[in-house]
Design a protein around this nucleic acid. Sequence first.
DNA 1: ACGCGGTGAGACACCGCCGTCTCATCCGGG
DNA 2: CCCGGATGAGACGGCGGTGTCTCACCGCGT
Lengths: 183, 183
Amino acid sequence: MAVDRDHVLRSAAALLTRRATATLDEVARAAGIGRATLHRHFAGRDALVRALESLGIQETEAALDAARLDDGPAEGALRRFVAAVEPAAGLLAFLITENQLFEGDDVHEGWSRIDGRISSLFRRGQERGEFRIDLPPAWLTEALYGLIGACAWSIQDGRVAARDFPYMTCELLLGGARRGVRT
Amino acid sequence: MAVDRDHVLRSAAALLTRRATATLDEVARAAGIGRATLHRHFAGRDALVRALESLGIQETEAALDAARLDDGPAEGALRRFVAAVEPAAGLLAFLITENQLFEGDDVHEGWSRIDGRISSLFRRGQERGEFRIDLPPAWLTEALYGLIGACAWSIQDGRVAARDFPYMTCELLLGGARRGVRT
DNA sequence: ACGCGGTGAGACACCGCCGTCTCATCCGGG
DNA sequence: CCCGGATGAGACGGCGGTGTCTCACCGCGT
């Protein structure tokens, strides 16, 4: 029977997030299949990473769609997005670091589109007066990626519970660590 | 003449941060020396990474010392630390991701000590009533790492200026993106 | 001038991973 | 029952990176 392609990709993402240099044999074993079968579905390591990238872009865009970024306050939209992207956090964490490998030569256009959508959200929040304007949207976007990755790693290491992911990420990004007058 | 060991390590960190899979030959060229000479000073790739790890731990601890974490408000201490660690941000960004490679088998004790010192700072801030108490110190620590790494990458990609590093990192971690009543 | 330590360049063999192939097995449909 | 497609296991050669060695060169102190 046809191997569960999605399951293979998720296993690979989970393993490669921990050890980016893992062998294809290890990737195959992690998915519960043989190296030959893995190679029948993904021509090589490169193709596998590309597939992971496509999956990550697809899921992130789906989360962006589901979050209805243009509806209501920007803060609510951000919370919806983070909650929607939570299942793909591990995959994102891998791709965020993996992107550092590409010498910036051929940045996938999908990423720039995602960057643009998230940046627009922050810009909208600034224009609505919700967000502070002394932090550029591009930096807020990068910081969001960083926090998602950090939280995903913490979850994988068992330091925090997966169900706290949206809360801890959103609260820190939105409110920061400082204790304010408002709750 | 004895090769400038520090210069070699910094070149290696800069290159490996961009491409963790860079060849030892590339690392040597980046430092302006031959592969043989590189190998005379660092037995192999493993030894090189270990040396980078030691350097990163050393510089981070030095930054912690220089920041006088126990003096005055926790917020000021955090700002001093981030400013002090800025020169080592690239190296830290590499080590943060590289740490994922070690299967958790032998986490360097130096890292746990650093984790402890930073966590203590956040805990002190919570006890002083400066920081909110619904975010655990461990998560604040991880988030700080994530933001440092994200900012370091943004700088390397030229998206933000290096001189903005302390401001953008501290402001986001402390105050968050939301526009508050206080400045 | 001489010797010497450190270096760069290159050659060489080794090893791990990868891509490919073959073959036996299993499982579901006709 | 038989057959075809998919899979797992293993073998094989190739390749790139690595570790080691040699040799020539250079700068420097004696």
